[in-house]
Simulated scan of single mutants.
Amino acid sequence: MMSIKRGNVVRILDKLDGRTDVLVNVNGKLEKAINYDFLTGQIHKNHEIILNTTAVDLNLGTGGYHFVIYNLNNEDEQMKQGGHIMKMRYTPFQIKVFAAEEQESPYHELFNGFKSLNNMPVIIGTLHSMLAPISATLKYLNPDVKIAFIMTDGAALPIYLSNSVQELRVKNIIDVTITLGHAFGGDYEVINIYNGLIAAKEVCKCDVAIVTMGPGIVGTGTKFGFTGIEQGNIIDAVNDLGGIPISVPRITFRDKRARHYGISHHSITTLGMISKTRSHIVIPLFSTEKNKIIEKQIIDGNLADKHHIINVRENVLLKALNRYDLGVKSMGRDLNEDPEFFITCSSAAMYAHTLIKEESID
Rank of each mutant, 00 (worst) to 15 (best):
M1R: 15
I4L: 08
G7K: 10
V9W: 05
I12A: 01
L16K: 15
D17S: 12
G18F: 11
R19P: 14
T20L: 02
T20C: 02
V22I: 13
L23S: 10
L23V: 03
V24W: 13
V24R: 03
E31C: 08
I34H: 15
F38A: 14
Q42H: 13
K45F: 00
I49F: 02
I49N: 02
A55R: 13
V56P: 13
D57T: 08
G63D: 13
Y65S: 03
H66E: 06
H66F: 15
F67I: 15
F67G: 08
L72G: 13
N73K: 14
E75C: 09
D76S: 15
Q78I: 14
I85H: 04
I85K: 10
M86T: 13
M86P: 03
F93Q: 06
Q94K: 06
Q94E: 12
Q94M: 10
K96T: 14
K96R: 15
A99Q: 08
E101P: 05
Q103T: 06
Q103A: 12
Q103G: 07
E104L: 01
E104G: 15
E109A: 07
F111K: 01
L117F: 05
I123Y: 07
T126N: 11
S135N: 01
Y140Q: 00
Y140N: 00
N142P: 10
V145R: 04
K146E: 13
I150R: 08
D153C: 04
D153T: 06
A155Q: 08
P158A: 07
I159G: 05
Y160M: 11
Y160F: 06
Y160V: 02
L161Y: 13
N163Q: 13
V165E: 09
V165W: 08
R169G: 07
N172F: 02
V176S: 03
V176C: 05
I178R: 07
A183H: 07
G186V: 14
D187K: 05
N192D: 15
N192S: 12
I193L: 10
Y194L: 04
Y194T: 00
A199D: 01
A199M: 01
A200G: 07
A200I: 08
K205C: 02
D207Q: 03
V208S: 01
I210Q: 03
I210N: 04
I217P: 15
G219A: 09
T222V: 02
F226K: 09
T227I: 06
I234C: 01
D236G: 06
D240Y: 15
G242T: 04
G243W: 09
I246V: 04
S247V: 11
V248N: 04
R250D: 00
A258Y: 09
H260C: 06
Y261W: 15
G262R: 07
S267Y: 13
L271Y: 12
T277D: 09
S279H: 01
E289A: 12
I293E: 09
K296E: 14
Q297L: 11
I298H: 06
I299W: 00
D305Y: 09
H308N: 11
I309K: 12
R313L: 14
N315C: 15
L318C: 00
K319I: 00
D325C: 03
D325F: 09
V328G: 11
K329G: 05
G332I: 08
G332A: 00
N336A: 09
P339A: 01
E340P: 10
F341L: 12
C345E: 12
C345V: 02
S347C: 11
A348T: 04
L355T: 06
S360E: 03
S360W: 00
I361D: 00
D362F: 10
D362V: 11
